[in-house]
């Protein structure tokens, strides 16, 4: 499954791969929703995301909004993610959590 979730009492680690698009967003949300609890730290690893569309951006935005109370960290943004964010003027919104993936951005 392109979404991988590992949990313990204190944190939820999510790893997304392949596409974060209109075809996968609902699935990703449904998989994650039960793990979203107030006192848990969440980190979402985006390094394997190869394709992002607007539906995917909405997913990220909604999750980020949800994250205001808890800590949700997005990390290792893949190039696809960074490009999509920049294109839609959202780089600033996700600025605090952009940690670039291992390959340098060209």
């Amino acid at each position: 499954m392109p979404i991988d979730i590992t949990t313990n009492d204190l944190s939820v680690r999510v790893s997304l791969s392949e596409e974060l698009t209109i075809y996968s967003v609902i699935e990703f949300r449904d998989a994650l929703i039960s793990h979203l609890k107030p006192s848990v730290d969440i980190s979402v690893n985006l390094s394997q995301v190869t394709e992002v569309d607007t539906a995917g951006l909405q997913w990220l935005l909604a999750l980020k909004a949800w994250s205001m109370a808890q800590s949700v960290e997005f990390c290792h943004h893949s190039k696809a993610i960074v490009d999509a964010l920049e294109l839609s003027g959202l780089s600033g919104t996700f600025d605090d959590t952009i940690v670039l993936a291992s390959e340098a951005r060209s």
Partner: peptide, 8 residues
Amino acid sequence: AFEVCDFE
């Protein structure tokens, strides 16, 4: 909100 959003 994330929980209820119809992402499509």
